[in-house]
Computed example of a mutant assay.
Amino acid sequence: MTLAEIATNPLYAAKNTSKSETVHQILKRRILLGYLTDDSPITEQALAQEFCCSQGTVREALLRLQECGLVDRRGYQGTFVTRTTRDEAIILTRMRVHLECTGVERAVAAIDDCKIAVLKELMDLYEESREQRDVFACSEIDRRLHCFIFDLADMPMLEPFLHRAHLQLHRYLISGHQGNIVWNRNEGSRHIDILDAFERRDAASAKRRMKRHIAQSVHNLAPDIYAVVFENAPQDEPQMAPEQLWNPALSVPNTI
C-alpha cells in the first residue's frame, strides 16, 4: 500500500495528516496482517529510504507503535515486533468479554439518538471496508466502534486496558492468516444485533449480544481460543456451543 492510498483511506484521512502518522498506519497494517513479525528486522534507515522521509519521521512512527505495544525498541539492538502468545490471547479474550459486557450495560443507559447515529455511521464505514476486503480497515473501525460504546459507559480508567486488549487480540487473531480471511463465510452485518438492543434500550439483551458478537469473531479466526474461553466458561456464565453460536435465530453470521 502506497502513502497516497493510506492517506485517502476514509478511516484516518485528514487534511493535516502528518507523514509520521502515515508511516505509523502502514507499519501498523503490516503488523496486524502478519507481514511484519518478531522475526522481521526493523531499521529506521531502511524505512526512511522506503518511505522517502527522515529517520526522525520513522522514529516518531515507531514510538507510537511502541506506546500501543506493537513494537519493542531496544536501544542499539534495534526495533522488534512484539509477540502475543496463545496464553496471552486467552487472557485478553476473557478481559475483553468482561470489560465490554459490563460496559455495554452501562452504555445503554447513556445512549441517545445522536450516539446511535454515530454507531450507524461506524457500521456503514465497516461495511464499506468489508466490501473492499480491507481486513486492516475493518479491524480499525471495529475497534473504534467498540471503544465508542465503552466510552459511553463512563469508566475512563479502564479504557486504555480495553484498547490494548482489543488491539493485541485482533493482532493475534488476524496476523496468523496474513490477510487471507474466508470472506465468503461472512455475510451480513456483525453489529446490527447490538445496535438493535441499543435502540430498544435493552441492557440485558445488549450484554448477551455483545458476548455472542465477540465469540463469533474468535470462533471464526481462532477456534482453539474460542473452545477455552467460551465452551469452558465458568459455571456462572452461559456456555456457547458451536450449534448455538451459528443458530440464525440467536446471532447474525460472522465476519472477520
Rank of each mutant, 00 (worst) to 15 (best):
T2A: 03
T2G: 14
L3V: 11
L3T: 11
E5M: 09
A7N: 13
L11H: 08
A13V: 02
S18M: 04
E21K: 14
R30T: 05
R30D: 15
Y35V: 00
D39Y: 14
D39A: 11
A48T: 07
C52D: 14
S54Q: 13
T57S: 04
A61G: 01
L62Y: 04
L70W: 01
G75I: 06
T79A: 09
T82Y: 09
T82R: 11
D87T: 10
I90F: 08
R94N: 15
R96W: 02
L99T: 09
T102K: 08
G103H: 05
R106G: 05
A109Y: 10
A110V: 06
I111M: 12
D113K: 10
A117V: 08
E121K: 14
L125N: 11
E127N: 12
D134K: 02
A137I: 02
S139A: 13
R143E: 07
R144N: 12
C147Y: 05
F148I: 04
F150I: 04
L152Q: 15
A153I: 00
P156Y: 10
L158R: 08
F161P: 01
H163V: 13
H166C: 12
Q168P: 00
L169H: 09
L169D: 11
H170K: 09
I174K: 12
S175D: 06
G179S: 11
R190K: 09
R190W: 04
D193P: 03
F198S: 00
A203H: 03
K211V: 02
R212Q: 09
I214G: 03
A215F: 02
A215W: 01
V218E: 00
N220H: 14
L221P: 10
L221M: 11
A222N: 03
A222I: 07
I225S: 02
V228F: 10
V229D: 01
V229L: 01
F230Y: 12
F230T: 00
A233V: 07
D236K: 12
P238L: 05
P238N: 05
Q239S: 14
Q239D: 10
A241N: 07
A241I: 03
Q244A: 13
N247K: 10
P248L: 06
P248C: 02
A249V: 13
S251M: 04
V252T: 15
N254P: 09
I256P: 00
